[in-house]
Design a protein around this nucleic acid. Sequence first.
DNA 1: GTAACTGCAAAATATTTGCATCCTT
DNA 2: AAGGATGCAAATATTTTGCAGTTAC
Lengths: 145, 145
Amino acid sequence: MNNVSSKTLDYRSTELLKKKHLSITESRKKILSIFLETKDALAHGDIEKKASEKFDRVTIYRTLQSFVEKGLIHSIPTSDNSVRYALCKDCTEGHHHDDHVHFVCSNCEKTICLDDVVSPKLNLPQGYNADNVQVVIHGVCIECS
Amino acid sequence: MNNVSSKTLDYRSTELLKKKHLSITESRKKILSIFLETKDALAHGDIEKKASEKFDRVTIYRTLQSFVEKGLIHSIPTSDNSVRYALCKDCTEGHHHDDHVHFVCSNCEKTICLDDVVSPKLNLPQGYNADNVQVVIHGVCIECS
DNA sequence: GTAACTGCAAAATATTTGCATCCTT
DNA sequence: AAGGATGCAAATATTTTGCAGTTAC
């Protein structure tokens, strides 16, 4: 990572934090920068690994939680125990509308948001009302195929 | 639970275990019976609670794992840390094809398999190949609406 | 009889909470 | 200056592993 892109990341994270009414702290900027420079979804452990300096585990937990609350990132459903997070495109506090498709590559194990593929409308049985449709597709991603 | 239905459950679990080439043990029959008599998906903790006698946590973990491996149950993606399982309709060892929709009620918190609503075909970007499409819908279920 | 399953103990991991201190606004 | 964020310690919760005894086939 060179200085220029690092400065840009810092600037972008600061702007995003301001926009979402979160106070600007070093940890938050760093953690948000990790999301900004990563295309795929991150689990708690990935953040620990990717962070150049060491953050306290607890700080990461609390930061992720605030980010989710303020609509900066969203969690992605998985079938195992790992919770993964990715940047929200345009969610607002208390209202997530990340109705896009998530793709999990069975080869490289990465989880990718396919922002352009929107969740389909489905015909549910009488009496069921959908608020939110999450789709997780398992398969082979473009880099592994 | 009366004797008749309990005998039936026992019989059905035994048959299912045989069919999936799992040895017939008391714990497996009991745990499978719990799935058979429950419409919604169960987390590890739910099984502990619902079991009339106390199973060792470890036995439950290992039983669920064998059931998943042999295609008796499948895990359902969730956005929080809870892994939930439900009976498979017709999965075989090593090959799950539970391409139906899962519905999570935001009121009663139950997770229900909508076996008749099949996952849609989606147009993925060039280079992405789907093996398996999982859909989780959040909303209000028929009993709560 | 043998291989597989279970239960107990304990290890390894993951998550949450309380509190004193430090930083942002 | 005040409220919020952080780091440390410790409590809790969750999951995995090893091993000896038991059960299914």
